[in-house]
Every structure is written in structure tokens, then in C-alpha cells.
């Protein structure tokens, strides 16, 4: 069986939240990639086609000056800048900005899920405006990453898109 490619865009993926990855490993069905910033996230999406992309809301900018200026514009605070939402808007919204050259596959809203500490009600409007409906809260437990990956895959499968 070919493992499915998963991208987790999360700055804390190699620290406290690292343990969330364990449950995914034991399934033996997934190949997990990490992106620790908005810059890295977009870079990975250019490089590779994924079966599911899990995005955090509070992302640091990374080394791309464009993300940097945006981060500063929003107060240089991951919490208020919410670069994860900006990333989704850029990839999925009308205004493509600097993600214009992304492959077509990466522009499917069903490919994405948001795993965040921000409550659903706070970000619902932003997510719905770009067609993303899958959300889970990080506080749900150690299997939450696996759960959101399965949610995304099931959604794509249910619509006959999943291969």
C-alpha cells in the first residue's frame, strides 16, 4: 500500500505538539511532512502534491520577507497576525497574491483542515469564506492530528475525489 502524503503546517510540530504525530506513525498509512512556518508551508505546497494538509492558525512568518512584513503589519505577534488564515486566503481565495503559481491540486478547499487552539466561532467566518469546513481543536487529545487527517481524507473520499 502506498502511504498517503500528509503536510502538517505547525510551528510547534517538533516540540510540545510532537506527540500528536505518534498516533499517525502507528497507523503505518501516512507519510508525515512538517512545515514550521508560513514560508515553509507555501514552499512545501509548491514542491509536493499532498493528500491532506493540516494548518495551524497562529503561524510564524518564516524567512520570506513578504510574510515577514505581513507579520509586522499585524503587530509581530503570531496570535494576532493569524498567518494560517492568510495562507488559506492566499491559496484558496480569489486574491492569489504570491501563491499564484501553486499547482491546481493545491487549490482544493477539501484538501485542507484547520487544527488550532483558536475557538471555531472565532475563525468560522474566515474558513467558510474560503470553503474550508474541517476544524478540530488541539485540546482534543493526543489522537487529534490523526482524527483531522482522517476527517479530510473521508471528506475527499466521500466526494469521489480521493484516490
Amino acid at each position: 500500500m502506498i502511504p498517503k502524503k500528509i503536510l502538517w503546517i505547525e510551528d510547534d510540530a517538533l516540540n510540545e505538539l510532537g506527540e500528536l504525530a505518534t498516533a499517525v506513525y502507528f497507523e503505518l498509512e501516512y507519510e508525515l511532512d512538517f512545515a514550521l512556518s508560513a514560508t515553509e508551508g507555501v514552499r512545501q505546497l509548491h514542491k509536493q502534491t499532498y493528500d491532506a494538509v493540516v494548518v495551524d492558525v497562529r503561524l510564524p512568518p518564516g524567512d520570506d520577507p513578504k510574510w515577514h512584513s505581513l507579520h509586522y503589519e499585524f503587530g509581530a505577534d503570531d496570535k494576532t497576525a493569524r498567518l494560517g488564515l492568510t495562507l488559506l486566503r492566499n491559496v484558496l481565495g480569489r486574491d492569489k497574491g504570491w501563491t499564484a503559481k501553486l499547482p491546481r491540486e493545491a487549490r482544493d478547499p477539501k484538501l485542507y483542515g484547520v487544527l488550532s487552539i483558536d475557538p471555531w466561532d472565532d475563525i468560522r467566518g474566515d474558513l467558510e469564506s474560503v470553503g474550508v469546513s474541517i476544524y478540530r481543536n488541539k485540546k482534543e487529545g493526543t489522537r487529534v492530528l490523526l482524527a483531522i487527517i482522517e476527517d479530510i481524507l473521508q471528506q475527499r473520499n466521500g466526494n469521489g475525489d480521493y484516490v
Binding site: L14, N15, G18, E19, A21, T22, A23, Y25, F26, L28, F34
Partner: peptide, 23 residues
């Protein structure tokens, strides 16, 4: 499967080894 995952640690980030082994 468990032993397989535990032995595959070298292909993963060091940050995840401990959690993989204990699990």
C-alpha cells in the same frame, strides 16, 4: 506494526523518537 514503527525512528525527526518509543 508497533515494533516496525519503533524501529523506523531514524527516518523521523528526533523530536518524535521518545514519543514513538513510549507509545
Amino acid at each position: 506494526r508497533a515494533v516496525g514503527v519503533m524501529n523506523a525512528y531514524r527516518t523521523r525527526n528526533k523530536a518524535h523518537w521518545r514519543a514513538t518509543w513510549i507509545d
